[in-house]
């Protein structure tokens, strides 16, 4: 436990935290621009050039709003709710390997906060914990709409967690490791897991949409039926936290999908680039590629939101239990058989 080790990790944690916040901030801007583009509008263009300062203006607005806690709400839980949502959204990135080992001077720096040998399960656990923010906040608001929204969030999360877990099991059969570092390192160059697990990837992605409460599965905050659901009693920055946590979650799930299935920092021709750029800049270039993949996924999230209408609740449950779970189980069985045959010959 040397002091430079602590400093290195501290810088890494701060950088990742800042990057996730900035990306989440500009996701709100990007979402409006994408929506505007898809609906043939201009979108925000008043604050700064091309409306680039809009997220800052929104943030200031959120902070300045009056803070209202309903008289019959459970005060402590009402305050814990948004904080928990934010916390669960932020701690997921701790085990993501952001790049290959980098040489800074003569020191080898790992671009990963921590490599626990059950990293994949850790992320899964954090995702499953995310629903508590919504549930606790919704219940503590003491409002019928919020309560309904909490209950919806809970059942939706539980249902899609199963499909997600099953799709991960098929991935584990291929990778033979629970450590994210190894999983990403295995996908060197072009050997991305999506080529071996296309069905698993689709199941995982649909479940990720449901777990982050994004359209077309944003039933907990459905405006038409629930007036915004669990956020209905929230005002000021508490509301801001809930909305913001959703964007961080989107960033984290995009990161996980890019890392697990689309090779993370790997790209074709990376060995050539490594000789060209040297051991300091080549890993950073890989990280840049990683972020491009993440942005592509975030754009995909937005594209889907403004294209596909919201599901009905029974449709959601049917898709989860009768569509995705059997598909994921079939995927596990077929993957297992194929691996057994391949190992035999």
């Amino acid at each position: 436990m040397e002091i430079d080790f602590v400093i290195e990790k501290f810088i890494l944690v701060t950088a990742i935290f800042a990057i996730s916040l900035v990306i989440a901030m500009y996701s709100t801007y990007a979402e409006r621009k994408v929506a505007a583009f898809l609906q043939d509008r201009l979108g925000p263009d008043r604050a700064g050039p091309f409306g680039i300062l809009q997220p800052l203006a929104d943030g200031v607005k959120m902070f300045m709003k009056e803070e209202i806690i309903p008289a019959n709400a459970n005060k402590w839980l009402f305050m814990i709710g948004p904080g928990l949502a934010m916390l669960c959204a932020c701690i997921g990135t701790a085990v993501i390997p952001w790049g290959q080992d980098m040489m800074v001077g003569d020191r080898l720096v790992k671009l990963q906060v921590t490599d626990i040998n059950v990293g994949l399960l850790y992320i899964f656990g954090v995702i499953s914990l995310g629903v508590y923010g919504v549930m606790i906040g919704g219940w503590a608001s003491n409002n019928k709409y919020s309560l309904l929204s909490s209950i919806r969030a809970a059942s939706q999360n539980i249902s899609y967690e199963i499909g997600m877990g099953l799709s991960i099991i098929a991935l584990l059969l291929v990778t033979n490791s629970l450590s994210l570092r190894e999983i990403v390192a295995q996908q060197h160059g072009w050997q991305w897991n999506v080529l071996y697990q296309p069905v698993g990837f689709i199941v995982f992605m649909v479940c990720a949409f449901a777990e982050t409460n994004r359209a077309p599965f944003d039933l907990p905050e459905c405006e038409a039926e629930l007036n915004g659901g669990y956020t209905i009693e929230y005002s000021s920055m508490k509301l801001g936290f809930y909305l913001f946590a959703e964007y961080i979650n989107m960033f984290v799930s995009s990161t996980i999908m890019a890392a697990l299935y689309f090779g993370g920092y790997n790209y074709p021709g990376m060995d050539y680039m490594a000789t060209l750029l040297g051991p300091t800049w080549a890993p950073l270039f890989g990280t840049l590629i990683f972020f491009l993949k993440i942005f592509a996924f975030i754009f995909f999230f937005m594209w889907v939101r403004w294209t596909i209408p919201r599901f009905r609740y029974d449709q959601l449950m049917n898709l989860g239990w009768k569509g995705l779970i059997p598909l994921a189980i079939a995927n596990i069985i077929i993957t297992g058989i194929v691996i057994a045959i391949v190992n035999k010959f």
Binding site: V131, Y132, M135, L147, I151, A154, I158
Partner: peptide, 8 residues
């Protein structure tokens, strides 16, 4: 989550 769900 299920416990909480049922109680709610």
């Amino acid at each position: 989550v299920l416990f909480l769900f049922v109680l709610m």
